[in-house]
Design a protein around this nucleic acid. Structure first.
Lengths: 260, 260
DNA sequence: CGGCGCTGAATAATCAGACAAATGCGTTGA
DNA sequence: TCAACGCATTTGTCTGATTATTCAGCGCCG
């Protein structure tokens, strides 16, 4: 995010490069500015006219960006009052974009710990459900994913894709749509944005045995075994993630927001 | 939602009554239409010009509504292609508005069961965390909430508010922001929209003993006791909710969406 | 003295119409 | 057969004006 003048807290202006939907870029930058505390809850943003002029975009593009943020609970607009940053308790922390915006800036330890805790609740339970409900075809796909992961190792994009897919199939096997939504959001937001940023020589030790244990338990149809195996796997992953977070300070590297 | 002509699947037009932000009303109606399956995933909405004319609103108002839906993952717009309903796996099921829209229409049993399951995972764990982390002041507030609930009973709005507050304080005591966000969303979406729609004579039996058990465990600092007490409480509530859902078919009664 | 309605100004909300950018698709030429 | 080109379509953006809301201040009345 580039500010031309120091008093501009969120004034990236339109990227002259190529195209990039403008309202999406503004929503992204403003969202990051809000979750990172550059605009504090209760604070009122400049008027539409002033802000859109400062950003060098039309009022309509700016307004569409604000609608996006309002949909995620970050701001609230009222005539005469203006657009106000809502209290943090109203933010949709589980929105994929909001989570991504947090991790682009410096997520608070409170948030990171909270997500870790949540993941530690959700994923083992999902594995237990999967052990009870998976069908033969899902089992086959899990095995294939793990074999692909083993062949490529997590040091490669292919290996990481296979890892992701393994977890995705487990979630799918739960047959619980909100759980699937939740777990993939958290997984995408926390785990993959950090652990794989580690330097190659700091990659976690061979994760395959832990993965195979989860698979075996699910294949055997043992929910308790699946739960504990997955808990061990997640704990190991979280240790690595925490280490990476502590080392880098934050996850850095902006990514493309899905919205827009 | 009023349709003037039968071929209009989502054409409530602007409410001539009072005021109501137009883009918010459109987002609401279109959102309900999408989650209820009137527009199916993969389907492409009419062009902005056509749809906005049909709704009798300006293109900009319609576009802002679409931005809101896109922010929640329900649709996706691209030049030349149009605005397409995204596959259900990409919807933010845990967005409070999306959840509310589901419950305005007929939520699928799959979704309802999924939410129940999720709640049964989350809330007992939250109670366990609360038992370990609550401070004296939170304990006092919990007791006051329960006493207020006892005094008014859940048959009154005051009693229900006290019930809500009790659960909210427990969540607050976990100190886990994503968990707070998640649990309040699910609680708002599932529980309160259904159970309290039951006829007075079908209200659940005295919920106070179960509530006091949860409180006692949290006060005593026993996470395991708190977990099992809360699990019992939630199970009872879910039974009542399931009964109400089965009887009414769905939760009916549209409510005001928060967005806009 | 206190509450209540009126008035005005500030701001978001909506509208209308034009132009720009992107992109899927058919056409055309090698 | 296939690649490059151009066209039509649709969303994206811009401009400027008008409308609706609502907060704050003031005066009036009880």
């Amino acid at each position: 995010m580039v500010s031309r003048r120091s008093e501009d807290r969120a004034a990236p202006a339109r990227q002259s490069k190529s195209s990039a939907r403008i309202h999406g870029a503004i929503a992204h930058d403003l969202g990051v500015a809000i979750v990172s505390g550059q605009y504090k809850p209760g604070e009122i943003l400049p008027t539409e006219i002033e802000f859109s002029e400062r950003l060098k975009v039309s009022r309509s593009a700016y307004r569409e960006a604000v609608r996006t943020l309002a949909a995620k609970g970050l701001v609230e607009s009222r005539p005469k009052t203006g657009t106000r940053v809502t209290p943090g308790t109203r933010w949709n922390l589980l929105d994929p974009d909001v989570l991504a915006w947090f991790f682009e800036a410096e997520p608070s330890p409170e948030l990171v710990n909270g997500l870790f805790e949540l993941r530690l609740i959700i994923e083992p339970t999902a594995a237990a459900f999967a052990a009870e409900r998976r069908d033969a075809q899902q089992l086959t796909r899990m095995r294939e994913a793990l074999m692909r992961m083993e062949r490529h190792t997590v040091a490669t994009p292919e290996g990481r894709d296979a890892d992701r897919e393994f977890h995705a199939i487990i979630l799918e096997a739960t047959g619980n749509p909100p759980l699937i939504c939740l777990a993939s959001t958290i997984g995408a937001g926390v785990h993959w944005t950090t652990i794989y940023k580690a330097r190659k020589d700091e990659l976690p030790r061979d994760p395959m045995p832990a993965h195979w244990k989860v698979f075996d338990a699910i294949a055997a149809g043992g929910p308790d075994d699946a739960r504990s195996a997955m808990e061990a796997l997640v704990r190991a992953a979280l240790r690595d993630t925490a280490r990476a977070l502590k080392r880098t300070g934050h996850s850095g590297q902006p990514r493309q927001a899905r919205t827009g």
